[in-house]
Amino acid sequence: MSITCRKYYYGDIPDNNAGGNISPEKNKLSGNDWPLWEVFIRSKQGLDHKHAGSLHATNAQMAIENARDVYTRRMEGVSIWVVESKHIHASNPEEAGSLYDPANDKVYRYPAFYDLPDELKHM
């Protein structure tokens, strides 16, 4: 007998397991909660939105309001992005070796590897 076991990584969860887009009847039966959302906050000084955490909400608008209440209470941000977690696809940790290790011995990819002419400033 063989058992196939599919392991899902964070964020890369199919719709029917993600908690979203589920009819109220099914929601009651399965005890599923509201869909999960990932929150990205841009701080006052920052140029980019950084991942702040996740939360539950029924739609995007509620997710932004919840993010405001949960993640910007101490003036952390001036802009909020939210995205349903199921739309984020993550790389597989088991493939980390083949994905990242090959860059280990390629120092020449750093600009510091090259000799620069003296005339060139501010590199």
Binding site: D33, W34, L55, H56, A57, E65, N66, D69, V70, R73
Partner: peptide, 11 residues
């Protein structure tokens, strides 16, 4: 009713 709204109403 949920964590997020607990925080919202407390705010």
């Amino acid at each position: 009713p949920v964590l997020e709204q607990d925080i919202a109403i407390t705010n």
